[in-house]
Design a protein around this nucleic acid. Structure first.
Ligand SMILES: [Mn+2]
Ligand SMILES: [Mn+2]
Ligand SMILES: [Mn+2]
Ligand SMILES: [Mn+2]
Lengths: 217, 217
DNA sequence: ATATATTTTTAGACAAGTCTAAAAATATAT
DNA sequence: ATATATTTTTAGACTTGTCTAAAAATATAT
């Protein structure tokens, strides 16, 4: 039985590993979890003790097989609950993260399997992230980041790498949503901002925004 | 913001008050919560400090207005989640208590209001217990306990006062369920066991069982 | 190669929630 | 009314998860 805190650590380490695919630094974890590095060291040592994390002093940490399994299970729960909130309870995609942050810790295999069935075994959550299968398989997304695209190339927005409320609200305001067809029409080399064609309109977005948008091209 | 533990204490004190309608003893709380009396004293003092419980040393505790409001809100969440699990996810009534015990601590007003609407504003949970309204109103049940009924009297089973798995499983096995029409056909004065007519059959139940069954007569 | 800056770990403290053992208050029985 | 039993509280300890401040290791720059 893992504590809520342990679960949150595993989940964030998993997320960081997905990004960088190498050992994650103590500071990186601390930043993600809004704690101090010293707290992270304490927790990492405990998780290492429990065989969930592979840790060598000063060398960063990575999940063990067991730790990764646990992490994926939590991610599965998180994304299924988000899907439930949006598909069944009519929440907007920018309103569900914090609630799912709590729901993901409810422990009951049966519950999550039933929820999965009730939702019709969805493949992606409201932010376009793949929902892990019960056996731990996760569809490997290899979508193209908007910043890596050239002028006149286009694709469908399938994934949003930032689930912060402020960011999602920005997208809502600009009327940018998962499923939209986006075409790059201009790139400003000075600040890497870009002009895109979306829903019959032209929009200018900063590099900071583009970094978080992934397209299926 | 209340901790999970504080919420559980408030809820159990509320339940005990409903039964006895007077101050609840430290030992009674300890028994219900599966803790030691000393732990209860510690927590009671904290809750009293926070103005949620009215406490005088050695004289037992009762909920303050504020404490009762909190308790009812938690009960509302518990019973709505139980209803969701049974009505939407096809759980049996004896499988939902432990899961609701966790879900009740998820904090989001919006979530619970949406869930309520999604379920069609149910009045009773799967065990026949009334679901408190958002404003804190709770339908006062005054059903008759089976042990208070005379031979040849009958009614509809509307409430079950014990949510332990073992007890509910017993009822499942005997095919006794909320909504069943029950008639007392014989009372054995020696041990207060009774013979009842239910679903075209005769059944003998002990006083211990009868104590937990409430009928609308 | 050395000095400086950055990252990470350790040491020591604290709050929450629990426990055991002992003391204090209250209830019960003779 | 006193002795005995029961209930409740206190004292002190332990675990979990966090923090600050200081020490140790590693990285970077000259
Ligand atoms: Mn979480
Ligand atoms: Mn998501
Ligand atoms: Mn609970
Ligand atoms: Mn119930």
């Amino acid at each position: 039985m893992l504590s809520q805190s342990e679960e949150n650590y595993l989940k964030e380490i998993y997320a960081l590993e997905e990004l960088a695919s190498k050992e994650v630094s103590t500071n990186a974890i601390a930043e993600k979890m809004n704690t101090k590095a010293s707290s992270v060291t304490d927790m990492i040592q405990k998780l290492s003790q429990k065989g969930l994390v592979v840790y060598k002093k000063y060398q960063g940490s990575k999940l063990s097989k067991k730790g990764r399994e646990q992490a994926v299970a939590i991610v599965r729960k998180h994304r299924l609950w988000e899907t439930f909130l949006v598909n069944k309870l009519d929440f907007l995609w920018d309103e569900v993260h914090e609630i799912a942050e709590q729901l993901e810790h409810v422990s009951s295999e049966t519950l999550i399997d039933r929820l999965d069935a009730y939702l019709g075994h969805p493949e992606f959550d409201p932010h376009g992230d793949p929902i892990p299968k019960p056996n731990g398989d996760v569809v490997k997304m290899q979508n193209k980041c908007l910043t890596d695209m050239d002028v006149n190339h286009s694709g469908v927005l399938v994934e949003v790498k930032n689930s912060e409320k402020a960011f999602l609200k920005y997208l809502n305001k600009r009327n940018i949503a998962i499923g939209d067809h986006i075409k790059v029409t201009e790139i400003e080399s000075f600040d890497n901002s870009m002009k895109i064609h979306i829903k019959e309109k032209e929009l200018v977005i900063s590099e900071e925004i583009a970094k978080n948008l992934y397209l299926n091209t």
